[in-house]
Amino acid sequence: MAETTGTMAASSAISSRWGRGLRRCLAHPLLWPLLTLILLLAGNGLFNPGFLALQWRDGHLYGNLIDIAHRAAPLALVSLGMTLVIALRGLDISVGAVLAIAATVAAWTIGHVSNDGLLPLWLAIAAALAAGALCGLWNGWLVVGAGMQPIVATLILMVAGRGIAQSISGGQILTLYYAPYSFLGNGFVLGLPFSLFVVAAVFALLQLALRKTALGLFVRAIGHNPQAAHVAGVRARAITLGAYVFCGIAAALAGLLVSSNVNSADANNAGLLLELDAILAVALGGSLLGGGRFSLAGSLLGALIIQALTTTIYAIGVPPQVNLAVKAVLVFAVMLLQSPLCRGQLRALLRLRAERRA
């Protein structure tokens, strides 16, 4: 009898632990973005048996999965910068224009410097990053210094940015013939695209800063309650300004990858509507658009989801313009799910159905 009681108690304890583990797993913010990505990839694998195949050829790894990750790299960089801004209750809808400015500045720099050695490459990278930082500083000053609403402040550069880029390029598409620069967007390291290492480095540095220093705590405090954070002594204005600068630098890095990948800089079309994709990636990753709660890993998953969705739409032969409609539906769905009123009504409906079944 004692053995039976002990066995039942042990079984009950194991079941309780499994239940707690399952609830913890279901409540994890990365579960649904990860599940969405897996379902997208699995669906492609079912309709196209060779979709998930990987090949090692000429010292490089090839396959659709590698292509998705490679093509999502610029969006992933911009999404990391956007995550930090949104976590602080901000928004930056000028990232597409900043990408175009940085790409044009880099192409112009290479075109006006002798293509000998690596000096033009470093000059182009430094010039592009400086341009992105200046754009971020401008946006941050309008938000922090002038007190403008973030969407209005960044709308100014969104409208004027492409005009600035076209002025630098003379209204022309700048073509590049410089192998070291092309390596940024087309090169491979250890068999993988170099762009993936750029994203990994930026993610690791940002994660380190947010996890191993007080910066992450400050960002959450400002996002939850800016006034309380200010009273507590948090330098909210400086941190917000720094977030916009970082967002500009992230967009500039994305511009380097985009322009080096196609060996040209198109001031009119580079990064067009990228701000929509970046905001959607952040939202899909589980970050609250109202600030406070954010996930860098979730934003990376969101960028991969968007690129996988785009690849799926093209693979099944749907017209490209439908891609924009699908993204709009996703934005609508995400905003509804993030609405406290909508979530409350959904929980009440599920509770009512459960009571009726009981």
Rank of each mutant, 00 (worst) to 15 (best):
N323S: 12
A358M: 02
R220T: 07
R211Y: 12
G132N: 10
A131I: 02
V245N: 12
A76S: 11
T240M: 13
A146D: 14
C247D: 13
V189C: 06
R89Q: 15
A102V: 08
G21M: 09
L123Y: 00
L26T: 09
G90S: 15
L206R: 00
Q55R: 15
T5L: 09
G344H: 06
L65D: 10
A103E: 02
G59M: 03
L99A: 05
I173W: 01
A201Y: 04
I313L: 14
P320I: 10
I222P: 14
L192R: 04
A303T: 12
L41E: 09
Q172Y: 06
G185E: 10
A228Q: 05
L272P: 00
F294A: 08
S79M: 01
A328K: 06
G185I: 03
N261R: 15
F188N: 14
A270Y: 02
W141Y: 14
Q345D: 04
S299I: 11
N269Y: 02
L174P: 01
A97M: 11
Y178E: 08
L253Q: 06
M335H: 03
S16D: 10
N261G: 12
I68V: 14
F183V: 15
N186H: 09
G59I: 07
I156D: 07
L196W: 08
A160M: 12
Q307T: 15
V258Q: 09
Y314E: 15
L208H: 10
V78R: 07
A87T: 09
R20N: 13
L34R: 08
R220N: 07
L352P: 02
P226W: 11
S11C: 04
I38A: 15
V199R: 12
A315T: 13
P120S: 02
L196N: 07
W108I: 02
N44F: 03
D58A: 12
I38E: 07
Y178R: 00
L30V: 11
H60T: 13
S264D: 00
L41N: 09
V231N: 00
T109S: 14
E275I: 06
Y181W: 08
A106D: 01
L157F: 12
L91N: 04
A130W: 05
A315F: 14
L174H: 01
G45C: 03
V85Q: 05
A315N: 13
G111L: 06
L337Q: 04
A214T: 13
G317V: 04
D58G: 06
F197M: 08
P340N: 08
V262D: 02
L54M: 15
S264F: 00
D266G: 03
Y244H: 13
L80P: 10
R162W: 10
A103D: 02
G271K: 13
A2F: 02
A297V: 12
A131D: 01
R17V: 05
G59T: 07
A200M: 13
S167A: 15
G117H: 02
R57P: 01
G171R: 03
L176N: 00
I14Q: 15
V262Y: 12
L142N: 12
I306Y: 07
I316R: 11
A214C: 02
A130C: 14
D92H: 14
P180E: 14
G21Y: 05
G45K: 03
M82P: 05
L52F: 08
A308Q: 07
F332Q: 07
L39E: 08
V152Q: 04
A9S: 08
I110S: 04
G255Q: 01
A73I: 09
P319Y: 07
T312N: 13
L256N: 10
A69Q: 13
T5K: 06
G161W: 04
L274C: 01
L208T: 11
